[in-house]
């Protein structure tokens, strides 16, 4: 620090504490709301201290759901979200590792052309071409399936770029040594490149898991069978599915359950998360 000004530091702490409070506030409110009985919300403004119905509310949403309002049990939706997020994260990493390996370690015809095809995918988010993509998935008979939920989202250039950048930094001597020892490309990939990329793979996994878990528009389009609803889109059904005022205590319990897994991933893998986030954008 340049100068020692105690008031400045004090003021900074004050601003940050208020800031953190504002950032945390919505989730705090959701947590509190999910512990109250339904009647609480009829009496006007919601309370700011926890109620006593937490276990009851959470077991209702996890095991029973609200079949009358078109919402299956959250347990199933959480499982679907998990499967979808895992398939997207693992799939993206697998195909990106392979294609980055091909682009960096081989010389072949149309290499630049393929590079550009992959690059294009960086540019167009699903949101801008939803109708035709939906038609393709429908024609392939992939509606209402885990494949339909995950495969169209697996292609993305971000991970390929990260791995390409990383492979370029791997010393040439590694490859030379491997070739002197008679290792073929696949052996080199499996025994040398993969072990070296573990940190990058983990960082990518954190980002992609969150990306997959938080998908909203895509599951909304390709599923109309309750058995494949994911939890993030399921919330919307609970809010608008019923004609009356939503059952806030159950909606908020669902919100907490939907937000918790990715938040835990970030908190426990903060370093990997920051690494993954800042390096993919370079």
């Amino acid at each position: 620090m340049v100068e020692n000004d105690r008031w400045g530091i004090f003021l900074a702490h004050l601003i940050l504490i208020v800031g953190v409070a504002i950032v945390v506030f919505p989730v705090y409110v959701a947590l509190i709301a999910s512990t109250h009985a339904p009647g609480t919300f009829l009496q006007g403004v919601m309370p700011l201290l926890p109620g006593s119905h937490a276990i009851e509310n959470y077991s209702t949403v996890i095991f029973e759901g609200r079949s009358n309002a078109g919402a299956p049990p959250i347990g199933l939706m959480l499982w679907n979200s998990f499967v979808m997020a895992m398939m997207i994260a693992v799939g993206k990493i697998a195909i990106s590792l392979l294609s980055a390996f091909a682009i960096v370690y081989f010389r072949f015809r149309f290499r630049i052309f393929f590079f550009w095809i992959i690059f294009i995918t960086l540019m167009l988010p699903v949101e801008v071409r939803i109708v035709p993509t939906y038609q393709v998935v429908a024609n392939l008979g992939m509606l209402n399936s885990y494949w339909g939920l995950s495969i169209p989202l697996i292609a993305s250039a971000t991970a390929t770029f990260l791995f390409r950048q990383f492979f370029m930094t791997v010393p040439e001597e590694m490859l030379e040594a491997a070739r002197v020892d008679g290792a073929g490309p696949l052996k080199f990939f499996k025994d040398i490149l993969l072990p070296l990329s573990v940190t990058n793979i983990a960082a990518m996994f954190v980002i992609m898991f969150i990306y997959g878990w938080n998908q909203y528009l895509w599951p909304l389009l390709v599923t109309n069978d309750e058995a494949y609803y994911t939890v993030v889109m399921g919330i919307q059904r609970m809010v608008t599915g019923a004609d009356s005022e939503p059952l806030w205590h159950l909606v908020m319990a669902t919100v907490v359950l939907a937000a918790l897994p990715p938040i835990l991933v970030i908190l426990f893998m903060q370093r990997l998360f920051v690494k993954g986030l800042t390096e993919t954008e370079k």
Binding site: L16, G19, V20, V23, V24, F25, P26, V27, V29, A30, A33, I210, W213, N214, Q215, Y216, V232, M233, I235, Q236, V239, W248, V251, M252, V255, A258, A259, P262, I263, V265, I266, L267, Q270, F273, V274, L277
Partner: peptide, 23 residues
Amino acid sequence: YTTFLVWPYAVAPAVAGVLWWFI
């Protein structure tokens, strides 16, 4: 402070919307 400020990244836009809609 960083830990307290990074986690909203994990919240889905739809969930963020519902949270503020409730507030």
